[in-house]
């Protein structure tokens, strides 16, 4: 009855759908899950995911230490998914498993499967070099190469064989810098060193570098923690723009940032995925008591 009234009142069908989805998710929710329950609550899978992680376990120190405990989680198309949790909860480890960056850590072992558009990235025939182009990464501290701004962006496409001529390279450099929102600020000094830019600009240069090799997923590990509020706002605005083309996974310690930029939020604790759900639900009315304790600052 209520739905009919709203439908009749609202000319915007999309708005109505959003409202009714939200109401439904609120109505279907169960009671608060107690602290001790380690099972994941919320919808971990989505339809037609970009990345599907299935029963992922990750160990350090040759299996001595278990960092990730049987996590199943989908990354949707064109979504920003935020991963939150206290230090040492495994969120960065899990993030790195999505482009096999953990391979470089000695004694690190991974069980389970991670599919990128249906293909298990841990299959023996997968080459990690093109994989890391497909699943790009932006780190906490901006890390431009000690080269010119132009070369920073052009390097990836060149080594991946994406460009053959100078014109093609120019085009891809300009396009990537435009997409990263940096073009206007650097177009007259492309030959200057990338390390001479401000922190926020350097981080956008790293994003441009990631975009240049045509990724499908961008992993961001606390991309704004070394930036001032203005540079942070610019990156957040950029993420909103980028998600039209890519899926973005962001690890962040800022609850406010997670709530601003993401559509889904995953809360990790001691290697377990405790809760995953629509961001608005996680921050307004989480189901798990641990999630509530963490986001309200009552972790003890």
């Amino acid at each position: 009855m209520q739905a009919e009234i709203i439908n009749a009142m609202s000319p915007d069908a999309e708005l109505f759908q959003a409202y009714s989805n939200r109401t439904q998710s609120m109505e279907n929710r169960s009671m608060q899950v107690p602290r001790g329950d380690r099972r994941t609550v919320g919808q971990a899978t989505v339809e037609n995911p970009k990345v599907r992680c299935e029963n992922v376990d990750i160990f350090y120190d040759l299996g001595e230490k278990k960092a990730i405990n049987n996590i199943t989680l989908d990354i949707g198309q064109n979504e920003v998914i935020a991963m939150i949790g206290p230090s040492g909860c495994g969120k960065s480890t899990f993030l790195r498993s999505m482009n096999r960056m953990n391979d470089t850590i000695e004694g690190c072992r991974m069980d389970g499967k991670i599919f990128l558009e249906g293909k298990n990235i841990y299959d023996k025939d997968v080459d990690v070099v093109p994989l890391r182009a497909q699943v790009g990464m932006v780190f906490q501290k901006p890390n431009p190469f000690p080269k010119s701004i132009y070369d920073n962006v052009a390097y990836g496409p060149k080594i991946h064989g994406l460009v053959r001529t100078k014109n093609q390279t120019d085009e891809i450099v300009e396009h990537s810098l435009i997409r990263a929102g940096l073009w206007e600020e650097v177009k007259d000094r492309l030959d200057k060193p990338g390390t001479g830019l401000s922190g926020g600009q350097q981080q956008r240069l790293c994003i441009a570098r990631t975009i240049a090799v045509g990724p499908e997923v961008i992993l961001m590990d606390e991309p704004c923690s070394a930036l001032d509020p203005i540079a942070t706002a610019i990156i957040e605005d950029l993420m909103d723009e980028l998600r039209k083309e890519y899926s973005i996974v962001i690890v962040t310690h800022s609850m406010q940032q997670a709530s601003r930029v993401s559509q889904r939020t995953a809360f990790f604790h001691l290697g377990d995925l405790i809760e995953i759900g629509p961001t608005e639900q996680i921050f307004l009315n989480p189901i798990h008591q641990l999630t509530q304790d963490y986001i309200t600052g009552r972790f003890g």
């Binding site: 307004l284 009315n285 989480p286 509530q292 986001i295």
Partner: peptide
């Protein structure tokens, strides 16, 4: 304080 969840409500 930018409260969240129960605190925000």
């Amino acid at each position: 304080r930018q409260p969240m969840a129960l605190d925000l409500r």
